[in-house]
Amino acid sequence: MSITYLEAIREAQAHALRDDPRVFIYGQDVGAFGGAFKATKNLAKEFPGRVIDAPISEDAMIGLAVGAAIEGMRPIIEMQFADFSTVGFNQIVNQAATLFWRTNVPCPITVRLPFGGTSGSGPFHSQSLETIYAHYPGLVVMTPATVEDAYSMLLEAVAIDDPVIFCEHKFLYYHLKAEKLPSEALPVGKARIAREGRDMTIVAYSAMVHEALEAAAELVPEGWEIEVVDLRSVKPLDTDTVMASVARTGRLLCVGEAWPWGGVTAEVIARVTSEGFGLLDVPPQRLNAKDTPVPYHPNLWTAHRPTARAVAAAARKLLRL
């Protein structure tokens, strides 16, 4: 028996609904239909009245979640695509993210963002928005790369008292499989060494972890041992694990699927260079998507996002420095 990344997300929600009467799910088509990606398949039947279809109103969906959280509930909001969360952006960053700071009343909402590129999805169904949410104080931004993390981190997202932007990668939904769901997990806020190596550190998160791992495997015959750090959550960002890795390897490449201006990769490099400049043998590098909207056609799309081949090429360049 195996379970996919998407099934893990469904199972985590079922688990949360079963364990905690305060949990409910609200989003477009999440009810009887089971969601655009079937992440809530059968949940409406299993938990009557707690998996509720919303009108196409991203702003009001988040607003409702904040109000329900004030009343002690633990809403999970499914954005049909991360891209549409920009319509609810105001409520996320100005209402949910500020509530605790302003009033001392926490805001335990989980906003699920099916994000990232898949072939043929184009500019408005492919975006990676972790950077803009991580920029705002008051939000936790999770970016699970594995089936196990998709499950355990979603459970933790629902359990913690703060608003969580849960970035689940659509590219991993069906491809990624595990044998079983985990019974224990690293806490949120801790990065993971996805592969050990001595020659270079690649820091990645979400789908890019797999591109980085593939690139690392590609470089083995060339004699390179690459360490891959999976950030797991981009906010908080586990600088300690990154620095410890860079201390071992002396070389750093950061890979992110988001756009290049600012962002998670820039943040990692800023921290390593300012706090651990002496650990670096060569200037750190980063690899992001191109600075254009996400293209529709696969020929363009595969060149737009960092792939294993592009990561390997960037790594070779860095290793030659």
Partner: peptide
Amino acid sequence: AMVSVVNG
């Protein structure tokens, strides 16, 4: 922005 919060 407060209207939907009251709804919630």
